[in-house]
Simulated scan of single mutants.
Amino acid sequence: MAKAVNKKTAPPRPDPAEEDRAGTAPFRSYALDRSDSPRFHIRLVENTQRLYPAHKHDYFQILYFLSDSPAIRIGLTSHKPKAGSTYFIAPMVPHQIRFDYATRCIVAYFDLDFLRPGITRSYPMAELVRLAPELTPFAWQNHVNFDLDAAQSERTERAIGAMIDQHRSERIGAMEIVRAELTLMLATLCQDYEADFAELSRTLPVVGRDSGHMRRIAEFIGENYTRGPSLDEASAAVCLSKSRLCALIRQYTGTSFQVLIREMRIEDARERLVLTDDTIGQIAYRVGYNDEKYFLRAFKSSAGMTPSAYRLKRATENRASPETATGRKS
């Protein structure tokens, strides 16, 4: 295994996202500290249990998982990471992440002008990937399964190791090597998934035009799903007709508006069952259910067990192996 995954790397400054301790944290937006240059950071997250509530930021972020992990949500799509899973989060795309004690994940984030000096940040994604094709994975994140195989993972971990070493270094040209490794890693993955991107470009040619709509939809639902917004309210908030809103949600998530709201509530409840000591009734209320019995039925229908059983199961798993995340074996 590449040495990048065998050593802990502290970030040069704290990660901006905070835990949702109050239960109803506002939607957050973050920017990199640009008081110094270059604008690139990389670190290993491990041995921590933490919820990064729904937020967005103005930089690019890559998550490379060395172990299985709880579900994360990018835009309106939930994902279940496993060892080798890679996620590409574009600027201003809402997302929520939870790490548990077994999670090991490399987190890298960078400004566009670090990767491509001189390119303005104002281009829409469809135009940006034409100017910087190595960023194509960020455009198709929720349409392509970036679960890397053994050879791809070995190559990616080698690049990560080089970036970590050079990022720590003060040697001449260190950040130029980081930029080159990052570009090569992204460009090589683009070639790996070139056929998928080509097919998506044929079947979803409007992804560039719709990206702004989907960002507004994701922000509105992310901020309001616990109170159960109506379809009329949602369509007015994102300036789309009800039929267009429903069509976009169906196209990009494969489900309906109401089912999506319900799934996000249950996903939120799962997180709270693990991360808080709130009662079942309190959790039901905080994720938008005024009727606890209805919440119990909805949760069991989705999770296959009651909230109490789910909480006990996860607590037992965490006690059994709080620090046993080993990632992919070398």
Rank of each mutant, 00 (worst) to 15 (best):
L44F: 15
L44N: 13
L44W: 14
V45K: 12
V45L: 12
N47Q: 13
T48F: 08
T48C: 08
T48V: 07
T48I: 11
T48P: 01
Q49I: 02
Q49K: 15
R50V: 00
R50G: 01
R50H: 04
R50Y: 07
L51E: 10
L51C: 05
L51Q: 12
L51W: 09
L51Y: 11
Y52W: 14
P53A: 06
P53T: 11
A54V: 15
A54M: 14
A54L: 15
K56T: 12
H57F: 03
Y64T: 11
S67K: 06
S67G: 10
D68M: 02
S69E: 11
S69W: 07
S69L: 02
P70W: 10
P70I: 05
A71P: 02
A71V: 01
I72P: 04
I72V: 04
R73F: 00
R73P: 03
I74R: 07
I74H: 06
G75Q: 15
G75N: 11
L76A: 08
L76Y: 06
L76P: 07
T77M: 04
T77W: 01
H79R: 05
H79C: 01
H79P: 03
H79F: 05
H79W: 02
K80L: 06
K80G: 03
K80Y: 14
K80A: 12
K80H: 15
P81E: 01
K82R: 13
K82M: 10
K82N: 13
G84L: 04
G84S: 03
G84Y: 02
T86V: 11
T86D: 04
T86M: 09
T86R: 05
Y87F: 08
I89R: 10
I89V: 14
A90P: 04
A90D: 09
A90L: 10
P91G: 13
M92D: 06
M92P: 09
M92C: 03
V93F: 00
H95Y: 09
H95A: 07
R98Y: 06
R98K: 09
F99H: 15
F99G: 08
F99R: 15
D100T: 05
Y101R: 13
A102Q: 07
T103A: 00
R104L: 10
C105I: 10
I106K: 15
A108V: 15
A108F: 14
F110C: 11
F110T: 06
D111C: 07
D111K: 09
D111Q: 08
L112G: 01
L112N: 01
L112M: 02
D113R: 00
D113H: 05
D113Y: 03
D113C: 00
F114T: 04
R116M: 05
R116L: 02
P117W: 04
P117M: 00
P117V: 00
G118P: 04
I119M: 00
I119Y: 02
I119H: 04
T120M: 01
T120V: 07
